[in-house]
């Protein structure tokens, strides 16, 4: 899986661009979908640990370079935590998603798919067994984000993803949406896209400083897991 870190923190702070993905609600009663081919989700190579704002942004190019260095440092310190705690985010995400779909009565078949960037699969590969529709999910980014510096702006887990259900027989888009756990700048005329699904993070996972994340690896992993589960729950809800 490729790294999509170039998307960060722009997509995080902006809650994703509003223009690319129109929201299409699923209508289960009329769609007649029982078997879903679940494409290998797009998933970043590692978590992001981002500051949505910090004083470095006030100092032009120099500040931006300093910010980039600090972000890289935060992420390299955090990256070891999931690995060290036996946490495989993409595997757990897949398992949660399959369980969520099966709970709602769908038969699920995995469909290996590859993509070269953080976007939906352009050419859906055929499933090995008959399916009624393909579900394509792209996790744009996940990890931790703080609105700003200081203990009043704690790091909280976040996930940003987009998902799409495509009818196998005629490629009709049956559902398409975007989900953000802990979107920055939602509501009140903020920057987040107008119809982006916005879910509050679990308040139990709040880390005042970066050091609190690295000092509490188990809680940090649990917070990441919690946000990913919130996002797969929402995908399940969209397909009910």
């Amino acid at each position: 899986m490729k790294s999509f870190h170039w998307l960060i923190p722009g997509a995080l702070a902006l809650g994703l661009s509003a223009c690319s993905t129109p929201e299409i609600p699923f209508d289960k009663a009329s769609a007649g979908i029982q078997r879903i081919g679940l494409l290998t989700p797009g998933f970043p190579s590692g978590p992001s640990v981002a500051l949505a704002s910090d004083p470095g942004q006030s100092f032009g190019l120099v500040g931006a370079l300093v910010d980039a260095g600090l972000q890289s440092n935060r992420e390299s310190r955090f990256k070891a935590i999931p690995v060290g705690n036996g946490f495989e985010p993409s595997d757990e995400f897949w398992n949660d998603l399959v369980a969520q779909l099966q709970k709602d009565g769908y038969a699920v078949a995995g469909v290996p798919a590859f993509r070269d960037r953080s976007d939906f699969v352009k050419q859906i590969p055929p499933a090995q067994q008959p399916v009624d529709a393909y579900l394509d999910v792209v996790v744009d980014s996940y990890g931790y984000i703080a609105a700003g510096i200081g203990g009043d702006n704690p790091y909280r887990p976040f996930v940003v993803l987009q998902c799409k259900l495509v009818r196998a027989s005629d490629s009709t888009i049956l559902m398409q949406d975007r989900v953000a756990v802990n979107a920055v700048n939602q509501g009140g005329g903020g920057w987040a896209a107008p119809k982006l699904i916005t879910i509050s993070p679990d308040p139990a996972f709040s880390f005042p400083e970066m050091e609190d994340l690295t000092r509490n690896p188990k809680q940090a992993v649990d917070g990441t897991r919690s946000a990913l589960v919130q996002s797969t729950d929402e995908i399940g809800k969209l397909l009910r």
């Binding site: 500051l51 004083p55 703080a146 700003g148 009043d152 909280r156």
Partner: peptide, 22 residues
């Protein structure tokens, strides 16, 4: 979670300050 940009002007100079709110 939100971010703000505050602009301060002092004579010919201006300064923008980025901050966050949780």
């Amino acid at each position: 979670e939100s971010t703000q940009v505050t602009t301060a002007v002092s004579g010919p100079l201006y300064f923008t300050y980025h901050s966050g709110n949780d």
